[in-house]
Design a protein around this nucleic acid. Structure first.
Length: 730
DNA sequence: TCACTTCGTATTTTT
DNA sequence: TACGAAGTGA
């Protein structure tokens, strides 16, 4: 039986590539996930690697879940095995697993301590039972720092902006592996800064507080795992867990993630990366598409396979995609070929204003549903910014067309969910100050702001949390003691192995939280807690512990639940990445939205505008059958009605539609790798120079020079590293 | 602690 | 413009 018979030639080539580094450049809709899962299977089936010794990392839970499920089915079907590989995870979750395993050891602790020594103002409380701080938690830590030092900092206006900016910078810095407060100050401190604590000191205080509470933020999960990997001796331990590494959405990796991948492949070089630079839309979050080049440099003997057959979209849509692609300055862009027999439809529709736009789209949704029988959930409205969704919601609602607004606001970020999770967090780790702050007076139990201030002031000084009762008086003290005795009781229940659902039930009763919701008539919130219980029941069924539950909760968003619901999907282009629909309405395709421009200012740099184009590429490659593009002549923004011009990108659509008859793939055959080391080149290799064009290497002259004969017959000598010379690969 | 008013804000946000 | 969050007063 040939288990690879359903793959096309290129996919097969990728899946069956020899052990060692492999780069798969996967165009939109070219079967990227297929290749990744079959590669996994191949490594097990043909190469004899154990499934639990392959690390496959993705960026989203959804992608990880999907891959896990597919692998489970494949192992069942082809090998008769009922297994789900344990290391198919997001970067964050894989890092968390690694830290859970090792952070209890003194050796690991001392490696990390030595790396963050300059950050610590108080003892860190980190062991393998740490919990994860999300953005809200981090913000709370920052606010506390000011409050406890008697500074008045508002949660609005400039102060709010400054705190947000600070956290953003902390995140960006740590994604680059920067934990040194001096470096942080140097690279990130803004020109004007009006908060009473400086950037450098706040960086230290933030981390001291966080680590004293036994918490790590998202970036620390990667950062700490990376520190352990970087240590020569300890790194080997982690590397020995895996015989192969696979990375999905490789164009989106940041510095730390890339370095982790590289370290993990150090012993065996067995690393597969799959990505599409044309769909790199997260560089503003620290992702670097340049790592595709770095990969080719670090693994010069990598097998490179390009998947250029698009199985998703009809012909016209593919030719629009190619037309956008051909205008990109991005290296490693390439055209894809449509596999479809259908033409599909691409239409540009001018409308008068945003209201007409929504009405037009609603009408078309209605008629497509009737005339072509396309179900609502197979249609999507994509826009650049969330603010654009309002009119569509309004009009679709009026038409009685079901819709789902897919927004970042997570189920897990809801107040009631966070409250309940905070109770469980305190039970798990009573030293977690942020969690305490959420539950101390929720529901109200007479511990007001004055009492609370006293509590937080002494929180770190006591050996045992119960001693805090002595800083309060009267009602507050009694109330605190009562709460504490509950917590002690719950901790005992956990020790005795109570199920998560039973524990939560007791917490809801004992804390008074349930009565509090009932009295307030908060039925919706009660339902949400019910939903949380369902999730917990699933954890119970798998025999997972409280600690595991808390860890995984923090890494979950509800993106996956969002798109299972029926109805037309409304979402930003960013949120649509990786999804596909029969019909896509791409709306607001105007200059100023695409590319996006804020406040009339120009672009900071060309890269930003290139990324806007890539975003447009992502948008036009979502539909299977039809793509409708709308732009408004007038639009009310900030209370002003202004005239709008169509987006310059519309041109690519028109070009593709005019040009359709002669589908050209002129640039399809080659791409280039920067060559700055002679080990990458040998005599006879095709090369390209920005200045002189294409040529062939006629001599390699160590240590760093080559001689090239260009296609026009001229011969030139270059010193690699000085001149931009690219190796051409077909 | 709630209901009302005023204020501030408007790019994307995988974990 | 129009939303949600924070602040105010009873």
């Amino acid at each position: 039986m040939d288990i690879y018979s359903t793959l096309n030639e290129r996919q097969r080539e990728a899946v069956l590539a020899p052990r060692g580094p492999l780069l798969v450049l996967a165009g939109a809709g070219s079967g990227k996930t297929r290749v990744l899962t079959y590669r996994f299977l191949h490594l097990v089936y043909d190469e004899g690697i154990k499934p639990d010794r392959i690390l496959a990392v993705t960026f989203t839970n959804k992608a990880a879940d999907e891959m896990k499920e597919r692998l489970h089915n494949m192992f069942q079907q082809y090998m008769g095995l009922d297994i789900t590989p344990p290391w198919v995870r997001t970067f964050h979750s894989a890092s968390l697993m690694i830290l859970r395993r090792y952070l209890s050891s003194d050796e690991a602790k001392s490696i990390i301590r030595s790396r963050i020594d300059k950050l610590l103002l108080k003892d860190m409380n980190l062991g393998s039972d740490f919990t994860v701080a999300d953005r809200d938690d981090s913000l709370m830590v920052i606010k506390n720092i000011f409050k406890e030092r008697g500074y008045k900092v508002k949660s609005t206006g400039d102060d709010k902006k400054a705190m947000a900016r600070f956290l953003e910078d902390v995140s960006l810095a740590k994604r680059r592996g920067i934990y040194d407060p001096d470096k942080f100050e140097m690279y990130y401190a803004p020109d004007y800064w009006n908060l009473p604590i400086g950037y450098r000191d706040l960086f230290k205080m933030y981390h001291s507080e966080l680590y004293a509470s036994g918490r790590l933020d998202f970036d620390d999960l990667l950062g700490f795992a990376h520190m352990l990997l970087e240590d020569e001796k300890f790194g080997a331990k982690i590397r020995h867990l895996f015989d192969a590494v696979l990375i999905d959405e490789f164009q989106d990796v940041n510095d730390v993630q890339y370095s982790m991948g590289k370290h993990l492949a150090e012993d065996h070089g067995n690393i597969t990366v799959v990505g599409d630079v044309q769909q790199s839309i997260y560089s503003w979050r620290g992702a670097s598409p340049q790592y595709v080049d770095a990969f080719l440099k670090d693994f010069p003997d990598a097998t490179v396979v390009k998947l250029d057959i698009n199985y998703r979209s009809a012909k016209k849509i593919v030719s629009v995609a190619n037309s956008v692609s051909q205008s990109m300055a991005t290296r490693h862009r390439f055209s894809v070929r449509s596999h479809s027999d259908e033409d599909g439809k691409v239409q540009v529709i001018p409308v008068s204003d945003e209201y007409a736009e929504a009405t037009q789209v609603a009408n078309m949704i209605h008629s497509l549903s009737i005339s072509e029988g396309i179900p609502y959930e197979e249609m999507a409205v994509l826009y650049r910014v969330n603010a654009q969704s309002r009119h569509f919601e309004e009009v679709l609602g009026r038409y009685g067309i079901p819709y789902v607004l897919v927004k970042g606001v997570s189920f897990y970020a809801r107040k009631e969910i966070k409250d309940v999770i905070s109770y469980l967090t305190v039970i798990h780790n009573p030293r977690d100050k942020v969690a305490w702050q959420r539950i101390i007076n929720t529901p109200p139990r007479g511990i007001g702001s004055v009492s609370q201030d006293k509590l937080w002031k002494h929180f770190d000084d006591v050996d045992d949390i119960s001693q805090l009762a002595s800083v309060l008086s009267g009602k507050g003290a009694a109330s605190f003691k009562r709460l504490w005795s509950h917590i002690v009781r719950w901790r005992k229940m956990v020790e005795e192995g109570i199920s998560l659902v039973e524990l939560l039930k007791d917490v809801l009763q004992g804390s008074g939280y349930l009565d509090y919701l009932i009295d307030a008539g908060e039925d919706m919130r009660r339902e949400n807690i019910g939903e949380l219980m369902n999730i917990m029941a699933a954890y119970d069924a798998e025999g997972k512990t409280l600690s595991e539950f808390l860890a995984e909760m923090a890494l979950r968003t509800d993106q996956d639940t969002a798109d299972s619901k029926d109805g037309v999907k409304l979402m930003t282009i960013h949120a649509a990445k990786g999804l596909e629909f029969d019909v896509v309405f791409l709306v607001g395709v105007e200059d100023g939205y695409m590319p996006y421009r804020r406040g009339g200012f120009g672009w900071r740099d060309v890269d930003d505008e290139e990324e806007e184009k890539r975003l447009f590429y992502v948008a036009v490659t979502r539909p299977r059958k039809h793509l409708y593009v709308t732009y408004a002549q007038y639009r009310t923004l900030w209370g002003d009605t202004v005239a709008r011009k169509p987006s310059p990108y519309i041109e690519y659509i028109e070009y593709a539609l005019d040009d359709e008859s002669e589908e050209s793939f002129d640039d399809n055959e080659t791409y280039k790798i920067p060559a700055d080391d002679i080990s990458m080149l040998k005599e006879g290799d095709r090369v390209y120079s920005d200045q002189f064009g294409y040529g062939r290497v006629i001599k390699v002259i160590p240590p760093a020079s080559i001689k090239v004969e260009f296609d026009d017959g001229t011969k030139r000598r270059f010193r690699l590293g000085m001149a931009s010379i690219y190796k051409v690969i077909s």
